[in-house]
Amino acid sequence: MLVSHLLFGLSLALFAQGYSSKDHDDRIKTALAMDTSATGASTTPDGRVFLILPHVDGTTGPKIVEVVGSKHTLVPYPNVQWNSWKASTDSAADAGTKYVSTNAQRVGPDGNLWVVDSGIPSQFLNSSKLVSFNLTTNEVERIYYLGDVVTKDGLLNDVRFNGKFAYLTEYAIGSIIVLDLETGDARMVLRGDTSTVAVIPDSADGQFLISSTTGQPQYIHADHLEVSPDGRYFYYQPGSGYMWRLETKYLNEALHNKTTADLLPTYTKPFSLTPATGGTAIDAEGNIYYSDIDRHEIRYIAPNRITALLVRDSRLEWVDAMWVDNHQRLWMCASQLNRGDLFVQPNNQPSTITKPVYIYTIDIGHNPSPIDHA
């Protein structure tokens, strides 16, 4: 079958050599061992831990959870109701007040928990949203409905903050969303731009990924994003790599100035030749960490563009969204996303994820960026 050959027989020439991974690096510590994948962890200064669960391994249940107690119980956050979406029975109104298709969660600089719900905008525009939860009351503080901005063809991916602005990647078309957190005004920019569109399919373990839905190579457009600690630069890239940089002053101005929005492609600059990437994070020094999902590595890019290896370990199977906590640790969810039901597996198996699924940490000696999260 052609699809099987594409996924399991096609080696990327770019990575044809030097594919060995160290089996075990003693600096890596296990934070959690679970029976389902997590694609992102975030923490609060007082030790609360939140996860996003993609359920790509046949499991069901809540999408956003808090890890509670010494037994690490996964509790639906903020409650069961928000995690109770059922496509077969729920209404358009429900789509605005439940998680429909969550893509990211993170504690923001304001101390709130922010959840990105890409939703199903082709059916329910109000399902595409950014939700802020007050972690003191555990109640919704504000919902930003973005369906009119992403349109029925777009899908929200992740979010970062810069003062009163939030920036979101949109991965189906390939674009950036600029959002004013005070007014709720938002605009899509860089739609279909060279910097937001993947030029090759995503890959993992040295092989192109094949969508289990379409049977075609999987392209993931605008995906990873970070903001420099001084708020000056916005970094972003497609899933398959090649990181770009843009001064935030242009991005912010583009929200209300169409001329500036149209000129944004002239302000974008290549920043780093990154590989296929599972997730990123940034520290207080401006080092950007990224996971190389072909080589099972975590590398980091200094502000001067010099790249260095942090760790290589065979256990780092598709490390997704990363997190720098207040104890100078980098959290790494080894999600095994490439082995889940999103992609074609050997012998058409629904999933080849090996359990337990681990979330690891490693000391990096740097604090989180002060504008990234509390």
Rank of each mutant, 00 (worst) to 15 (best):
319 V>C: 12
351 S>P: 00
39 T>C: 12
288 I>H: 09
61 G>V: 02
236 Y>F: 15
44 T>F: 07
305 R>M: 06
100 V>D: 08
239 G>T: 09
340 G>T: 09
37 S>H: 03
186 A>Y: 01
180 D>E: 01
256 H>G: 07
71 K>N: 15
73 T>N: 13
129 K>L: 05
212 S>R: 05
110 D>M: 06
269 K>C: 08
368 P>C: 02
61 G>T: 03
227 V>K: 11
313 D>I: 01
212 S>D: 08
259 T>V: 04
327 H>R: 13
14 L>S: 15
11 S>T: 10
331 W>E: 00
129 K>D: 09
223 D>M: 12
259 T>W: 07
289 Y>F: 02
352 T>I: 05
60 T>R: 10
21 S>W: 15
374 A>N: 11
75 V>Q: 14
365 G>M: 07
372 D>E: 14
211 S>M: 05
76 P>E: 12
113 L>N: 00
84 S>H: 10
153 D>E: 12
68 V>M: 06
298 I>W: 14
185 D>N: 15
257 N>E: 03
175 S>H: 07
162 N>V: 00
27 R>I: 00
72 H>Y: 10
285 E>A: 14
257 N>Q: 01
332 M>W: 08
36 T>S: 11
214 T>D: 04
359 I>S: 06
190 L>K: 02
64 I>Q: 11
226 E>G: 03
313 D>F: 06
299 R>T: 14
179 L>S: 00
37 S>L: 10
175 S>R: 09
166 A>H: 02
219 Y>P: 01
298 I>G: 03
169 T>Y: 11
175 S>Y: 07
150 V>D: 09
228 S>G: 06
133 F>A: 07
345 Q>W: 06
49 V>F: 04
146 L>K: 12
284 A>C: 12
157 N>H: 14
199 V>L: 11
196 T>Y: 02
346 P>V: 01
75 V>A: 13
17 Q>E: 15
217 P>M: 01
197 V>T: 14
374 A>H: 14
205 D>I: 14
204 A>N: 13
36 T>I: 04
84 S>N: 13
102 T>L: 10
269 K>Y: 11
83 N>H: 05
117 D>W: 08
344 V>C: 06
345 Q>I: 00
24 H>F: 07
290 Y>G: 07
260 T>W: 06
32 L>N: 02
94 D>H: 08
104 A>R: 10
328 Q>D: 00
327 H>I: 02
354 T>M: 08
167 Y>S: 05
169 T>P: 01
262 D>M: 05
104 A>E: 10
62 P>Y: 15
33 A>I: 08
349 Q>T: 07
6 L>I: 06
